[in-house]
Simulated scan of single mutants.
Amino acid sequence: MALPTAPVAAGSLVGGYLVARETGVRPLGGAVLGVAGAWCTREWSRRAGAPVATALLATYLAGFGASHPLAKRIGAWPSVLTVAAVSGAASWALADRRG
């Protein structure tokens, strides 16, 4: 059975933040996001087609972008966990549950 994309998408948003925070090297956190995002996009495309993969990648990237202003309102960790949950749920709903 193929690895589900939902935990990778959600986990990489959390992991990317954690790597950037703990190392102080933001591009290193971005590398985590880039590698995981590329893998997820390939899998989304394979499992659900290019239009769904494009929508999920947009959700993933929008979550990353939205986490910054959201963090100013609710805090860093709640923000990261919120966007990770949204990205993971979308990945499961649109790609993973199809089998």
Rank of each mutant, 00 (worst) to 15 (best):
1 M>A: 11
2 A>M: 07
3 L>A: 09
4 P>A: 08
4 P>V: 05
6 A>P: 00
7 P>Y: 02
7 P>R: 09
8 V>G: 00
9 A>F: 09
9 A>G: 04
10 A>T: 01
10 A>M: 08
11 G>S: 08
13 L>N: 04
14 V>M: 09
14 V>L: 14
15 G>K: 07
15 G>S: 09
15 G>P: 02
15 G>Y: 03
18 L>I: 11
18 L>T: 14
19 V>G: 03
19 V>T: 11
19 V>E: 12
20 A>H: 07
20 A>I: 12
21 R>E: 15
22 E>G: 04
22 E>M: 13
22 E>A: 12
25 V>I: 15
26 R>L: 15
29 G>Y: 06
29 G>N: 11
29 G>P: 14
29 G>I: 13
29 G>L: 13
30 G>C: 13
30 G>K: 14
31 A>N: 03
31 A>F: 13
32 V>R: 11
33 L>N: 07
33 L>G: 08
34 G>N: 12
34 G>T: 13
34 G>L: 15
35 V>F: 14
36 A>T: 08
36 A>E: 03
37 G>L: 01
37 G>E: 02
37 G>T: 06
38 A>C: 09
38 A>P: 02
39 W>T: 02
39 W>P: 04
39 W>M: 08
40 C>N: 06
40 C>R: 00
42 R>T: 11
42 R>N: 05
42 R>H: 10
42 R>A: 15
43 E>K: 04
43 E>A: 15
44 W>Q: 03
45 S>T: 14
46 R>M: 03
46 R>F: 01
46 R>W: 02
46 R>Q: 09
46 R>E: 12
47 R>E: 10
48 A>H: 09
48 A>V: 05
48 A>Q: 06
50 A>S: 12
51 P>I: 08
52 V>S: 04
52 V>H: 02
53 A>K: 00
53 A>E: 07
56 L>G: 01
56 L>S: 05
58 A>L: 14
58 A>W: 03
59 T>W: 00
59 T>S: 10
60 Y>Q: 01
60 Y>A: 00
61 L>C: 10
61 L>I: 14
61 L>T: 10
62 A>Q: 06
63 G>F: 03
64 F>A: 15
65 G>C: 09
65 G>E: 06
67 S>R: 06
67 S>E: 13
67 S>V: 07
68 H>A: 14
68 H>D: 06
68 H>K: 11
69 P>Q: 12
70 L>A: 09
72 K>Y: 06
72 K>N: 12
73 R>M: 12
74 I>L: 12
74 I>C: 07
75 G>F: 08
75 G>Y: 12
76 A>D: 13
76 A>W: 05
77 W>E: 13
77 W>R: 10
79 S>W: 05
80 V>D: 02
80 V>Q: 11
80 V>A: 06
80 V>K: 05
81 L>K: 11
81 L>S: 04
82 T>N: 07
83 V>P: 00
83 V>L: 09
84 A>E: 04
85 A>S: 13
86 V>K: 02
86 V>I: 15
88 G>W: 03
88 G>I: 09
88 G>Y: 06
89 A>I: 09
89 A>E: 05
90 A>G: 05
90 A>Y: 01
92 W>K: 00
93 A>W: 15
94 L>K: 00
94 L>G: 06
95 A>M: 08
96 D>P: 01
97 R>P: 05
97 R>L: 05
